[in-house]
Nucleic acid binder design. Structure first.
Lengths: 214, 214, 214, 214
DNA sequence: GATGAATGAGTATTCATTCAT
DNA sequence: TATGAATGAATACTCATTCAT
């Protein structure tokens, strides 16, 4: 391992250290009430150091979302590349993948919405904006691919695959957001998962061509 | 009408005037970038006056959401009180009601999530918190009632009505949030409505007992 | 006096109060080391209040310069409008006027240079930029007028009046800056005035047509 | 050449390398907006290295001025040591020298004023302060010498030579500063030189004893 | 000597909220 | 009631300087 590579690795380690600290602080306080100093303290670094790794607060925040999008894509591509599955099993695998994503980071998905707010987007670098868009496209495209196969095999409603993917994603994030927003009353994660499971079941039933499956 | 009542009426008029102005400003600038002075200007009042009608910025913001919740409840109760409808028609009427709500205020529904963030809730008075909780419960209860009837008549999956209501609401708001978040690329309101319609269709199909309907 | 006029007067009073405080602080600490909080304290106001009267630090600073330019112009116009003076007396009156300006505010003239730095100019409002340019033009024009008369009467070198005005002004400010910069060694204001006087004398001799005077 | 001497030479080379880079950056961005990192990059060194050669930013900045003062003195001493010139020719040679100095570094002369600001001086080492004072004295003394000879020969006004030198220098720098400050409107270097030439002419006429010359 | 990552003090500016009128 | 001037706490971000390697 060359010296350059080692440095790069060290740098990436620091980035992750900061991201982890930021995640904790953002989760606890929310975006606006979390200060850069809070995050620096949590990461046991000085405020200035944060700016060596992230252009500004918004870009640090966006990095959190990027991480889950990357995980999501890996998981989705794994579903699509598994040629042993038939269309129906693939839909089920998709649902499983979403559960994994939720387990990977139950809180950060909420942030994906904050990320999308135009307030935030204005402060991001072209590079990061491009990456967000790219990853968003990729993940939606991967979801659509699952449905496309089902449509081809005529076991899924003949809707545009992207439209189904949109609805699937909207339902997924809608349940998480909605159930999370009730957390003040009920912080029971199992309840959320149950709802998620039920929602996926209803969705899966809803998209199936009549009589074909069950 | 006594003098006291007249005053109360006048006071309510002012509140509405401020709420309308706030809505415009929040929609245009988002919560954080909208200043109390902006809102005061839009309402043609002075900043100080706003505080005679609302405890603070968060409470003013919450009032916007209260308004749509009230509309939602009226609409839902209308669905439930219409004894001419059978269970299936009632589900359809529910869907129609949600479209009305969306038309009533397409933007403010996004705010319901901001409202729920713990950041905001901390600044609200007990009274307002109570009212939010009350209205939320009521509306969810009304949605659940629609499904309960369907379950009773065995044309809807035998799930807990509240669970179905949760999923229904989550899908509704999920689609709106998700499609809205794509607005940078696609600000087409019809597309959103189409997705909403498709989502409702899938949901409706998904909750129906096999073989029962269509 | 209407209520509006009274308010306007009050507002102007506050502006002056801030300008006076700012002048003291800028003189003592220099532009960069003077903080807005320093100035606020000196003016017995809060930092926020400063921003009700001046857009930013640069604009507050620029206001100081505006004040002396205004005084300068009044003084110069007085010289030009005095029809009793012949060309030679008018040059002498010009010199006297410059002494007055120096007495009016010996320190702030140094600021005119800081003001002109492109760093500063970028932060000024269009309005203020326009006013600065306008006043600068006017004052130089007034100086040129003095020389124009002398040229017409053939007792002053036949140079472009504006060129003479430029040199006159450059010498004036050059002497002040140069002598002031030596203040660490010699803070004697009389010495500065003596040098100024000598400089003006040399200038006056230098611009006179040969043989014409003395 | 011993090893020590070689090292010293190497060290001086580096200093010059940094000074040259600093000059470029300061000219482009101004003192405050130029960061040590900018300069380090321009010099193709690391920020830390700059501090091996200069105590701090102010001292680096001051070094730039020292360089021009050194050039100025060499040029002035050359004028004084040329015994072939009579007093009048010497004044002309002085003027020529100043043009050379301006050509040597048209921009850095502006910095001499920044240097003198008490803000800056406080951060300089005793040694550097001493050198600045020493060089300033020397250069002024050399200018005064030119005039002294003229006074002795009674072709220049019988003023204190230092007073004349002060005025001469003030006019020189005043013209440069003043014309430079107008650069936003007119970045014409020839115009500046023309003004400088005219200013010197007026000054030269102004200091001459009546009837003696021309 | 040289590096450059890390530091952390320093500050302009904003804006929700108050209160004298 | 209504005003709107004044407040002052709060914070993102910069950059000269240091020091372990």
């Amino acid at each position: 391992m060359g010296i350059r590579e080692r440095k790069e690795r060290e740098r990436e380690r620091r980035r992750q250290q900061i991201i982890v600290a930021a995640k904790r602080v953002f989760c606890e306080k929310g975006f606006n009430r979390a200060t850069m100093e809070d995050i620096a303290k949590e990461a046991e670094l000085s405020p200035g150091t944060l700016y060596l790794y992230f252009k500004n607060k918004d870009e640090l925040y966006a990095s959190l979302s990027l991480r889950i999008l990357q995980y999501l894509i890996i998981r989705l591509e794994h579903v699509n590349s598994n040629s042993e599955l038939n269309a129906e099993e693939r839909v089920d695998a998709l649902v499983e993948a979403m559960f994994d994503v939720y387990d990977f980071d139950p809180l950060i998905i909420i942030n994906l919405f904050h990320l999308q707010s135009s307030e935030t987007l204005k402060n991001l670098s072209e590079e990061m904006l491009g990456e967000i868009e790219n990853l968003s496209r990729k993940s939606l495209s991967a979801i659509a691919d699952v449905f496309r196969k089902g449509i081809d095999e005529k076991i899924v409603l003949d809707r545009h695959p992207y439209a189904l993917a949109d609805i699937f994603w909207a339902m997924f994030s809608g349940v998480i957001l909605w159930e999370s927003s009730k957390k003040i009353i009920n912080d029971d994660k199992d309840y959320l998962k149950d709802t998620l499971r039920a929602a996926f079941e209803i969705f899966t039933r809803g998209i199936k061509c009549q009589g074909t499956l069950q």
